[in-house]
């Protein structure tokens, strides 16, 4: 859920999605779901001459599993917030009902 929440904060921002087949798509992040499937608007294909079949691509849905990287503008990321959320999500205390135990 951490990265689902993370990508939700990036909705409306410009990102570059690099797929496992080396295609790179830039565009505006429209939405994301729990599988990290992504919808991009006003897509531009980087290195378009290599992929002429993608020239007419405007908006698209990308299955999460085919993504290799997502490049993000560092200005759009609060790294302190991200680290705190990561520590919380992966801390041995949280989850496994430990917090519930305290309440008895």
């Amino acid at each position: 859920m951490l990265f689902y929440s993370f990508f939700k904060t990036l909705v409306g921002k410009e990102v570059a999605v690099e797929l496992k087949n080396d295609v790179i798509l830039t565009g505006t992040l429209h939405s994301v779901d729990q599988y990290l499937n992504i919808k991009l608007l006003t897509v531009n294909v980087v290195n378009q001459d290599r992929y002429p079949q993608l020239t007419s691509l405007k908006n698209c849905f990308i299955r999460g599993s085919v993504v290799r990287y997502v490049q993000i503008d560092p200005k759009d990321v609060d790294t302190e917030l991200l680290q705190d959320a990561t520590r919380k999500e992966n801390s041995p205390q949280v989850g496994g009902g430990a917090l519930m135990e305290d309440k008895k």
């Binding site: 990265f3 993370f6 990508f7 990290l36 999460g64 993504v67 290799r68 990287y69 997502v70 490049q71 993000i72 503008d73 560092p74 759009d76 990321v77």
Partner: peptide
């Protein structure tokens, strides 16, 4: 070089 990168 990339400034900020999500890696699957």
């Amino acid at each position: 070089s990339v400034g900020m990168l999500f890696v699957r």
